[in-house]
C-alpha cells in the first residue's frame, strides 16, 4: 500500500470539503484496502467517513417506509430481529454474503459501491479497458464468472448481493455532494461501463451516499432471495436472484425480478416481470417468467452454465413467493 494522508471528519459538510479535488472516500475499507494492496487504487488522500453520525442507524417510520443509513454495518442488518419482520429479504441476502468479519466491517454504502471481482480488473498486470486500457481481457480470456447479459466493452458482473434485494423493493438512494443532494432509484446508481463511461456507479468522486430508502408500499410485498455459489460459504454469487410481488387473491401485482452476478449491473428482468403481472403464480407461470428472464442471454465461451443456473434460480425463487 502506498502512503496517503488521512482525515476523519465528524460533519458531512466537512467531509465534502475534504473530499474535493480527487480524495477517496472510505467507510469499512474492505474493498478499498484490497484494491490498494493489489495496486489497483493508490489514493493520495483518504477521507474516512465512519464518524459521520447522520449516515448511521436504520429505522422504519410508520407510513414513511424504511430508511437505512449508508454506514449501517451489514452484520447489524443481518442480525436484526426487527428488520427480519420488516423486510426479511435483507437478512436472506446478507446471511450467505462474505464472512462474519467482513459483514462486521462492511457497510451498506460500501457494499453497493464495491468494485467488480473480475480477475483481470483485480490484477495489476492487466491494463484492462475498465482501468483505462484498450481491451477487455475477459472477453477472449477466462470468463467463467463473467456476464451473460447486458455487457458492452467490459464483461465484469455486479457483485453485491444486497443490491438485487433492495432493488426488488424499489429502493431509492440519496447522495450528497458539493452541488447538493440528489435522490434516485437505487437501480440507477449502477451504470453499465461503455464508451467513455469507464466506471460501474453513477456517483461522482465528491459525493457520498447518505442513505437508502424503501417505500412503505413496497414493504407489504412478499420477497425471496436465492444465491448460487461455487462453495457453500464465503463466495461471491455465481448468480443471485431477488424477487418480490404482491399476491392479491393469488394473483401477482408489482412483480420484481432482479439478478446479481449475470450483468455489469444488478439486472432487472423487466420482460419476465411483465409476463407475471395479473397471473396466478403457479408452476407454469414461474417457468415462463424464468424462461423470459434469460431469453436475451448471450453467454461467453466459459460461462454458458450460468444461463440454465440463473433460469432455474429465478424459477425456484419465484416459486417461494406462492
Amino acid at each position: 500500500m502506498k502512503p496517503f494522508a488521512y482525515a476523519r471528519p465528524r460533519a458531512v459538510t466537512e467531509a465534502l470539503k475534504l473530499a474535493r479535488g480527487g480524495a477517496t472516500v472510505m467507510a469499512g475499507g474492505t474493498d478499498l484496502l484490497g484494491l490498494m494492496k493489489d495496486g489497483i487504487a493508490a489514493p493520495e488522500r483518504i477521507v474516512d467517513i465512519r464518524s459521520l453520525e447522520p449516515l448511521r442507524g436504520w429505522a422504519r417510520a410508520k407510513g414513511k417506509g424504511l430508511r437505512i443509513g449508508a454506514l449501517v454495518s451489514l452484520v447489524d442488518l443481518e442480525t436484526s430481529a426487527e428488520l427480519a419482520r420488516t423486510m426479511p429479504i435483507i437478512g436472506e441476502a446478507l446471511r450467505p454474503a462474505a464472512t462474519a468479519q467482513l459483514r462486521t466491517m462492511g457497510t451498506v454504502g460500501g457494499n453497493l459501491l464495491q468494485r467488480n471481482r473480475c480477475w483481470y480488473f483485480r490484477d495489476e498486470a492487466y491494463p484492462c479497458w475498465l482501468k483505462g486500457g484498450v481491451r477487455c481481457f475477459a472477453i477472449e480470456g477466462d470468463n467463467r464468472l463473467h456476464a451473460i447479459v447486458g455487457a458492452e466493452e467490459c464483461v465484469a458482473v455486479a457483485p453485491s448481493d444486497l443490491a438485487p434485494a433492495l432493488i426488488a423493493y424499489d429502493a431509492t438512494v440519496s447522495l450528497t455532494g458539493s452541488r447538493g443532494t440528489r435522490t434516485m432509484p437505487l437501480v440507477d446508481l449502477f451504470v453499465t461501463p461503455h464508451g467513455r463511461v469507464r466506471r460501474e456507479h453513477a456517483i461522482t468522486s465528491d459525493e457520498l451516499i447518505i442513505e437508502v430508502r424503501v417505500p412503505e408500499n413496497a414493504l407489504t410485498r412478499r420477497g425471496a432471495f436465492e444465491k448460487a455459489m461455487e462453495r457453500k460459504t464465503w463466495s461471491f454469487a455465481l448468480v443471485s436472484v431477488a424477487v418480490s410481488a404482491k399476491l392479491i387473491g393469488g394473483v401477482v401485482r408489482d412483480a420484481r425480478i432482479v439478478l446479481g452476478g449475470v450483468a455489469p449491473v444488478p439486472w432487472r428482468a423487466r420482460d419476465a416481470e411483465k409476463l407475471l403481472e395479473g397471473q396466478v403464480l403457479d408452476d407454469a407461470a414461474c417457468q415462463a417468467a424464468a424462461d423470459a428472464a434469460l431469453e436475451r442471454a448471450e453467454p461467453l465461451k466459459d460461462n454458458g452454465y450460468k444461463v440454465p443456473l440463473a433460469r432455474e434460480l429465478v424459477r425456484r425463487t419465484l416459486r417461494r413467493l406462492a
Partner: peptide, 17 residues
C-alpha cells in the same frame, strides 16, 4: 474538480500519533 482542501485537515502521510 474543486480546490484541494487545506493540508492541516489531513494527517500523514508520515507517521502520526
Amino acid at each position: 474538480m474543486g480546490r484541494v482542501p487545506k493540508a492541516s485537515s489531513y494527517i500523514g502521510p508520515g507517521a502520526v500519533d
